[in-house]
Simulated assay, not measured.
Amino acid sequence: MNKKIIHDALILTAFTLILGFILGAVYNITKGPIDAAEEKTAQTAYKAVFKDADSFKKHSFNKNKINKQLSKKGYDDVIEDIQEAKDKNGKVIGYVLTVTAKDGSQGSITFSVGIKNDGTLNGYSITASGETPGLGLKASENEFSNQFKNKKVDKLEVVKQKPSQDNEIQAITGATITSKAVSNGCNAAIETFKTNLKGGKA
């Protein structure tokens, strides 16, 4: 009886080791292409919100500190990454902040937001979203996203009617929650810029 238990245990151990080796090998094979695809998606988003930039360089920042600051000010959004947008001479002309808004109608929405040195919003580009096609996914379309371009405001506000002030964004019909999630994410980016990036504070 003891011999059978030992035999079965050895077989199970060997099987586990072999399976672990196979999974590790598959991970190593797929990691490179996955990382490359994610980097390509990110670079496309950076360029979409900062067409004047010649290159982008990762900006060093204290992620925990910045997101705690946002949380204290009532934001559920998280700043995932900050890139310095540089011209052909290597001069920083603004920043691209990648934000995850956690209050979308179907979950989180991740997007990049471009902000010039003077605080002007260039717009945003969504990189990941589980929003509903035909409704929340309209946040990726120009009709809605163009409203965010060339805005120089302290805070955006979503309205259902035609905007009467520069800080107002007209909600997507039937997708007010998504509209607010994107606007809140942009507000989190603006707040982070004002508090930590303007004047090279971070």
Rank of each mutant, 00 (worst) to 15 (best):
A128L: 12
A128T: 13
S129M: 10
G130C: 04
G130Y: 02
G130P: 00
E131C: 13
T132L: 08
P133R: 05
P133W: 05
P133N: 08
P133G: 08
P133A: 04
G134L: 11
G134M: 10
L135K: 11
L135E: 08
L135P: 06
L135S: 07
G136R: 01
A139I: 00
S140N: 14
N142F: 07
N142E: 15
E143R: 03
E143G: 00
N146M: 06
Q147N: 12
F148H: 07
F148T: 05
K151A: 06
K151M: 07
V153C: 05
V153R: 05
V153Q: 07
D154M: 06
D154F: 08
K155S: 15
K155Y: 08
L156R: 04
K160I: 07
K160F: 11
Q161V: 12
Q161N: 12
Q161S: 13
S164H: 07
D166S: 13
D166H: 09
D166G: 09
N167G: 03
E168F: 06
E168R: 08
I169L: 15
Q170D: 04
I172C: 10
I172D: 05
T173I: 09
T173L: 09
T173S: 15
I177R: 14
T178D: 05
T178F: 00
A181T: 08
A181P: 10
S183P: 01
N187T: 06
A188E: 08
A188R: 04
E191S: 14
T192R: 02
T192M: 06
K194T: 06
K194V: 03
